[in-house]
Amino acid sequence: MLIKGYLDGPLVAGESLLARPGFWPNHLLAMCGDGACAERPVPEWFGDDGADVDALSEVLFDPERWPVFRVPAEDGPGAVVIYRNLVGDYGTDYLLTHPDGSRAQQIAGREGDAPGIGLTWHELVRIADNPPAAADGAQDGAVRLLLLLPLLADADLPEAARERITVALTATRAPQDTAATTADHLLAHLERRSRHDPTWESPLSGSRTAGQRSGTP
């Protein structure tokens, strides 16, 4: 697989992994791994267990095959999530893509928190809710929302955000009786962001973006 503007790695389509047990803990528990959550993050928040997580980790973090999760959008920029399995430099890269197929633009890499860069809730929902009918990639709205949730950097969330994330979690096998609490855990990292941080930027607003691993300008 080739992605214009991204020069690293043996990329492979990863969408078939989205329904595998252990995917969502691998993808989302890192949001709570830096002390943002009062409780120790556990895979059971997503309806999985440690064995599920370990088994899928071997696939997700294979240096010979870097899974790519495509989230194209009908009416504007979409996104791509890449598991960058470079030995000694593991991480997750997030790229913006454009409907005309021009070069992708890296906006963030997750080796922890990425302050100052991210999407507003409105931007995140716009991408999640507008999959092109004929494009390759993730089509389900709940899956698309959760794939891009680590990019959320909006401290002024609407009341509906928590419920929307709760519904997305239950749609991807999280236990219904604890999904709302899991949503709170996932959003807890936003409380550490200043509501008036002058360095906060949305890459979709045309402002400056993060340093580019991909080599894009």
Rank of each mutant, 00 (worst) to 15 (best):
T216S: 14
G50K: 11
A19K: 09
A108W: 00
N85P: 05
P63L: 10
V42D: 13
Y83F: 11
N26E: 11
G14M: 02
G47S: 08
T178W: 11
D8F: 09
V53Y: 01
S207A: 14
P21I: 01
M31Y: 01
P115M: 06
N26P: 04
R20M: 06
A210S: 09
G33W: 03
A168C: 15
P43Y: 04
D177M: 12
A174T: 14
G35Y: 07
I165G: 07
P21C: 01
D48F: 11
G76Q: 08
D62H: 09
E111P: 00
R164V: 06
L56P: 09
G50I: 08
G9A: 05
G91M: 04
A36I: 01
A138L: 03
P175G: 14
H27K: 02
D197A: 14
A51F: 12
L7V: 05
Q106V: 01
Q106E: 14
E44F: 02
L96S: 10
R65Q: 15
V81N: 03
L148E: 03
R40H: 12
R192E: 12
R65K: 15
D89L: 12
D48A: 15
L7F: 00
L96Q: 06
D197H: 10
E111Y: 07
R110W: 04
V125W: 01
A128L: 03
L28Y: 04
A155G: 08
A30G: 09
I3Y: 04
V125T: 08
L28E: 01
F46G: 10
V53D: 01
A51Y: 12
T92N: 06
M1C: 05
S202K: 06
R192I: 02
A142T: 03
A153R: 12
D52E: 08
G35H: 09
M1E: 10
A73H: 03
P63K: 10
R213A: 08
G211Y: 09
H185D: 13
S57Q: 12
V42I: 13
P132V: 06
V12G: 01
A30S: 10
D75G: 11
D89Q: 11
A73F: 06
R65M: 08
T172W: 05
P115L: 05
T178I: 15
G5T: 00
R164N: 07
R40V: 15
D140T: 01
W24D: 02
S102G: 14
L96R: 06
A179D: 14
S207K: 13
R103Q: 11
W66M: 05
P115T: 06
C37V: 09
D75W: 09
D93N: 07
D156W: 02
G206P: 08
T170C: 15
